[in-house]
Design a protein around this nucleic acid. Sequence first.
DNA 1: CTGAAAGCGCTAACAG
DNA 2: CTGTTAGCGCTTTCAG
Lengths: 346, 346
Amino acid sequence: MSGRVTIKDIASSLGVSVSTVGRALSGQDRISARTRRQILDEADRLGYVANSAARVMRAGHSNLIGLVIPEIENDANAAIARCVAESCAARGYQMVLFISSDDRDRELANIRALAEMRCAGAIVTLGPSPHRETIRLLSSMPVVQIMRHTSKLISDSITMDDRNGIAQAVRHLAELGHKRIGFVGGSDKLSTGVNRIVGFDAGLVGEGLVRDDALVITGPVRASFARKATEQLLNSENPPTAIVAAAVRLTIGVLETVNKFGLKVPDDISIIGYTDPLWLRGWGPGITTISIPVHEAGIAAASLLIQRIQDKGKKRAVASVYTPNLIVRNSTTVPRPHDRFLNRLG
Amino acid sequence: MSGRVTIKDIASSLGVSVSTVGRALSGQDRISARTRRQILDEADRLGYVANSAARVMRAGHSNLIGLVIPEIENDANAAIARCVAESCAARGYQMVLFISSDDRDRELANIRALAEMRCAGAIVTLGPSPHRETIRLLSSMPVVQIMRHTSKLISDSITMDDRNGIAQAVRHLAELGHKRIGFVGGSDKLSTGVNRIVGFDAGLVGEGLVRDDALVITGPVRASFARKATEQLLNSENPPTAIVAAAVRLTIGVLETVNKFGLKVPDDISIIGYTDPLWLRGWGPGITTISIPVHEAGIAAASLLIQRIQDKGKKRAVASVYTPNLIVRNSTTVPRPHDRFLNRLG
DNA sequence: CTGAAAGCGCTAACAG
DNA sequence: CTGTTAGCGCTTTCAG
């Protein structure tokens, strides 16, 4: 265990005091260059490894920044994690990642661990109904909410304008001439889920289209759900000529099922996805999608948080909303005449 | 800052000693149920949040388990992260994730942070040439290497038998009748990269096929590289009738390019991927691939590490190697007669 | 420029 | 069952 060497060991080994060693180790203080060199060398020789617990205890806070997200197996969240990690590292902070699995108990445990570590701040994507205690703990530290926003917690936030994003998708399809547009979306318990469906309706209204409830299906954000939903859509009396999938996982299920039905994209049916993982660009003809600026969001969240940590003056919370972006590829085109479409499906 | 309440505050507020409070807070010790209740309630009322730094300092080690991986934007690593996080949480440990970006300096910084936190242990995927200091630090803590293995560090390890995996892919194609099999692989600086190409050669030999160097291209594990490599393959004098892509990112690039050339999978060309992300199953006809047991690996790594942490007796390091699994879907079939294939390409 | 000493919050050994 | 006390390793006054 070489990790057991302390500044005391270095001090006695060199015949100096612990405070001198401390000064040498922790940046530029009143100390002669020569003693510093000596001390640094000796520390190296002994295999000294600082004890951050002692430092934290003394300072009252650590240089850890917590990132709490519901899942990591998801291109957007993974990108955010990387960007936050990089931004933190560049500013002398260390990101620690927690995966809450959208489970409120685990979420609380994660936030509690963060609070116990006396972390400098946290970037969080909270679940649908966080424990009161979760909110209380977060209220006592600098926080930035990312991707989702709950008004139960007053803090800065960085979210996507999903309403606008989905509305753009609908507009794009409407402009191509689609009138029967299907929607496969996530649960409406999350702010993101709600916004996406609201955006869908808004998009329809904006284009003078009427919503057909049979064409709108929401459920858990899983490929298996999307497969079922798409089957239902395609088997219905009067199926849609285009489908908007409101999440990556759902996009996968929709594409898979459309394939299974032998439908060609975009000739037989137009498909539009949400967010832009690497593989969407090369799937079949290339999938048209709404991309969201996850990298910018991650970087901004970290900057914002670090600014909050360092600024003592507590200004008002600011909510930044990023606008998604339509990326037109080749999975959307004008609708096939309806009788021929039904024929193709039958 | 409600986080500033200490056991001392609770003690004085209740007129008991700090050790009584300590006992009440930290599990079952000699203490009356009534005082415990009182103390717990008071702690709650005051908004007490334990100070893990103080605990770590006292204990000499934390309950943190570090996971250091080169990247997280990758289905396999993301799955590992989740599984490790869950396994740790279930056993009372807390995972902290670091992303090294395959940069040896960052990797060292990550490991150093872990050492300074006095973490209980670490699960690591090291880069191609770690700093000597990285190895030194890791040598002083319980470690499990995952996915990649370097013999510079003596520790338990959990890796995939990539040789076998790729060889299975080759065998599958050879059995279908393919003789000209292309290979798009990652850099040969990593143990994984090397093993995959060795497996390719072994697979060819096992099937009595000869390697054509023009058909084997390796480079950075990026879709852009795979696109270029595939173009080169398809434009060559005598192109392959099947391609093995030795990583997800490469699979994406290969599929995209094959598409771009107007080739149909599997009629015009057979494609086989490596690892099994969600979207591969529904891509076009469904992509045949070699799946690797990442969930098992993540869970095993965590169990193994925790066992090492708790067992004082240091047994010999054990290297577990997991065998990949061929999943046959519809991107592989018998080769099209070669003249007609060239025709189709031309 | 350097040393001595106090104390961050908690636990555990010892004494009642 | 409860209280007293001594550190864990480090930083930071305050003296020299």
